[in-house]
Amino acid sequence: MTAAGKEMLRIRNVSKRFELDSGSVLALDNVSMDVKPGEFVSIVGSSGCGKSTLLRLVMGLESCTSGNIELGETNISKPSAERGMVFQESRLLPWKTVAENIAFGIPKTNPKKEHNAIVKEHVELVDLHGFEQALPYQLSGGMQQRVSIARALVGRPNILLLDEPFGALDALTRIQMQLEILRIWETERKTMILVTHDIDEAIFLGDRVIVMSARPGSIRKVIHINLPRPRDRSSTEFMNYRRDIFQEFFGEQQKPFVFEI
């Protein structure tokens, strides 16, 4: 791995204001955090808390109104192959096959003759062997999302940004995809930032869970998850983390659990 892979992601006093016809909206207010190389960070928050906006800023799809985001020494201002992103919708190009969609993510600096090998390697990584020539409409939602993950990884990014990647999948497929992303994280050792509104998912995957509050979006709490992986969703410790995070959202009064631990 290159030296760049060991670089820290620094988000410093970032604010983002959107100018709309109806006035301006402060989507993010003075957000700061560091993400260590190889770390898995989950960000949870209710919809509209700016968590996706934060991810888009890290990707370089939008620019900060104030503050800055740095990867090592370089300031992030535009998208780069250093960072890959997976969205809630797979966003595959319907006219390209699985292999062509994955190849679309290879940066043009890569020699052409390596393309086939890179695609093959990533098809194996996301377990889609035999589906290389399939078109997106022939795949299930979970498989489409696997292609999307492969496309984000072929540029060999050091950071993978996941913007509610399993939000549109059914509960069973979602759990399967969580195991899958964990496996990829463990083999590839990339930094991963996951935005989700699923508290279980955030605890199951993250080294840290960052709880965000809405309007304006800001960091409310950072919770370190000190559990060995793979994590047992029904363990007492898991439940305790779950309760802590629920309380951040709903307070003491409204207990979301019908039982006491």
């Binding site: 998208p79 192959a81 679309f104």
Partner: peptide
């Protein structure tokens, strides 16, 4: 627009 955004993102 989401497809265009993906392409932009991929440089």
């Amino acid at each position: 627009r989401k497809h265009i955004e993906v392409a932009t993102m991929l440089g």
